[in-house]
Write a protein that binds this DNA or RNA. Structure first.
Length: 568
RNA sequence: GCGCCCGUAGCUCAGUUGGAUAGAGCAUCAGCUUGCGGAGCUGAGGGUCGUGCGUUCAAGUCGCGCCGGGCGCACCA
């Protein structure tokens, strides 16, 4: 149990004693006052007063008068309809610092998910198309949800699902034959080239209706593993997969298992055929559909009239396969919000098939450009590689300026870490359910609410440790500065933040918490001189606090898929 | 047409599930370094929370209408 939880437990006990049996105090009712001058924990009396038919402000002052201090709580005051509790700062300081230094990388972790297993489906790029910054958002959001769930004790399987087959792939293979026969493509240009071929093919098809027939033919031939198309597909598919693996690694995204559309397609078709025989699905205009009128979800297409598989065909098989392979208690699908209706239809279909495990679509919104949505079709995309290189260049220049004595290699490594941190933080700092409008200028900035600002905090603390021989060991009770207490209070909230994020999947709250911590530290660092060789004990205590800040901040960053660095 | 989402400072966003004086970052302006990293710190200006009703002790938050924007609704994924 975290220090803060222990304090809250104290308050609940005290309130119970003061109130008696007429009203039950739930630990969830407590609020954080808008300003710390009120205190650390607030008990709003509205609900309790309503039950008694009395004025909440009167109740608050009565309660405050009847509750005495505890180990964790120093003062109890009534302010209007609130009873405000202020932590005993010496106790809180000792406990929190001790807890963080002892737990290290597990500080913030909880047990609410113990014994429960979840499968998270995320990172679903399509081969033969560009991996763009929208895919980055999906991958890091999904990985963060996995990290958060693990931090709460859940057993989690992270599953990447790759779209390596279907109409878009056939289109590319077709265009390669038609426009690029025998062309050799430099290794480092492969994915870019595939993206261009896709865009070119799309433009051609839009102007030449008859090409659709040819592409459909290629798709059937691919499904029948006909040469030379099958070999071409295998080779170009590998080009994309290599790029995905590399991108995931750079983004600190690590799926535990990989599923491929090409693996579940046959199974999907079989399942749909059986559904038709069982009378679950029916034929309509030559295609196989589910009539979901009863669920108010319209008609759901399961198989094309030419017998070809659709995304839905494969999805049904995929969900069953994941269930069979890993037996999770629950499956999450991290997929963009435009698929909301689609997933409702998929879930309703599975429900009718007798599937009972909970399925949840975690909908997040898109990354768009100032001029509108990105589109692989029109080639109007910002790719992961393009943005990364842009960022690396900019950080390389900056880093060189700051550290002229550093080697080329060190500059490059640092710039890469900063670039990735910037990109990821840009995706994670905003609520996942809102649109991110990508702004290049803003993406390249490193002031304020950005990844580099957070890494800077870590780097400063790391540097502090190098400047003294004094060890961070001693009496945390020597910390009495107002800014120190502000940091302690904020640090104490972390376990609660992790637990909440594990329920709501609002990853951005962790990013906000981390930024607040970094800001509080910057204020502290500016005002208080940490190292004082004349006052070894106080310096040791301050170094303990700095270490605690670093540990908690790094834990938060890792939840967000950001790797801290020592120097920048 | 039906459905979902969004509208908060010049810009980009928070706002603890209906609570205390609506907050950050960027930008603008004014300051801070013979102090452990200035990718930093301090301060200032900037708001009829799109709009009108309603619900109640209390609304940026809930409901309804309107205005503006985005997305989705049968062979793409």
């Amino acid at each position: 149990m975290s220090t803060r939880d222990k304090a809250i437990l104290d308050i609940v006990k005290a309130l119970k004693k003061a109130i008696g049996k007429g009203y039950t105090v739930h630990p969830d009712i407590f609020e954080v006052p808008p300003n710390s001058k009120y205190g650390d924990i607030a008990f709003p009396c509205f609900d309790y007063a309503k039950g008694l038919g009395r004025n909440p402000a009167e109740i608050a002052s009565e309660l405050a008068a009847h509750i005495g201090p505890t180990d964790y709580i120093e003062t109890i005051t009534a302010a209007g309809p609130y009873v405000n509790f202020t932590f005993s700062l010496p106790t809180l300081t000792e406990q929190v610092i001790k807890e963080i230094l002892k737990l290290g990388v597990t500080y913030g972790c909880g047990t609410s998910g113990e014994g429960k297993s979840i499968l998270v489906d995320y990172a679903q790029p399509n081969t033969h198309k560009e991996f763009h910054i929208g895919h980055v958002r999906n991958a890091v959001l999904g990985q963060s949800i996995i990290n958060i769930l693990r931090a709460n004790g859940f057993h989690v399987v992270g599953a990447s699902y790759i779209g390596d087959i279907g109409a878009h792939v056939a289109k590319v293979i077709w265009a390669m034959e038609k426009f690029h026969h025998g062309e050799s493509v430099p290794k480092d240009q492969r994915t870019k080239w595939l993206g261009e071929v896709y865009t070119q093919a799309t433009a051609y098809v839009d102007a030449h209706e008859e090409a659709k027939e040819e592409i459909a033919l290629i798709q059937r031939k691919l499904e029948g593993k006909e040469e030379p198309y099958y070999s071409q597909w295998k080779e170009t598919r590998e080009w994309s997969l290599t790029a995905f693996r590399e991108a995931f690694k750079e983004l600190h995204v690590h799926p535990d298992v990989w599923y491929f559309e090409s693996d579940v397609e046959g199974e999907g078709k079989e399942i749909v055929k059986k559904m038709l025989i069982d009378g679950l699905a029916k034929k309509s205009q030559g295609a196989v559909v589910m009539d979901l009128a009863e669920e108010n979800l319209g008609i759901f297409l399961l198989l094309k009239s030419d017998g070809g598989a659709l995304y839905s065909t494969k999805e049904i098989a995929l969900i069953l396969r994941k269930q069979k392979d890993h037996h999770p208690d629950r499956q999450l699908m991290v997929v963009d919000v435009r698929q909301s209706l689609y997933f409702q239809q998929v879930f309703a279909t599975l429900h009718r098939m007798g599937f009972t495990q909970p399925l949840t679509h975690i909908a997040y919104d898109m990354v768009t450009l100032p001029e509108g949505a990105m589109s692989s079709r029109s080639g109007n995309v910002v790719t992961f590689e393009a943005l990364r290189d842009d960022l690396v260049n900019s950080f390389q220049e900056e880093t060189k300026k700051r550290h002229p004595e550093w080697t080329e290699k060190k500059v490059e490594e640092t710039a890469r870490a900063l670039a990735i941190a910037s990109m990821i933080f840009m995706m994670q700092r905003q609520d996942s359910q809102t649109i991110i409008t990508f702004d290049r200028e803003e993406a390249l900035s490193f002031d304020g609410f950005t990844g580099p600002y957070l890494l800077y905090t870590v780097a400063r603390i790391a540097s502090l440790r190098k400047n003294t021989k004094i060890k961070p060991k001693g009496k945390a009770g020597l910390l009495t500065h107002e800014k120190e207490y502000a940091l302690i209070r904020h640090l104490a909230r972390f376990p609660d933040e992790v637990q909440k994020a594990g329920i709501t999947f609002q990853i951005s709250t962790i990013a906000l918490w981390a930024f607040e911590l970094a800001k509080l530290f910057a204020e502290y660092y500016h005002e208080v001189h940490v190292i004082d060789e004349e006052q070894k004990e106080r310096t040791a205590a301050r170094l303990m606090l700095c270490d605690a800040v670093r540990i908690a901040l790094e834990n938060a960053l890792r939840l967000l898929c950001i790797e801290p660095i020592e120097e920048m």
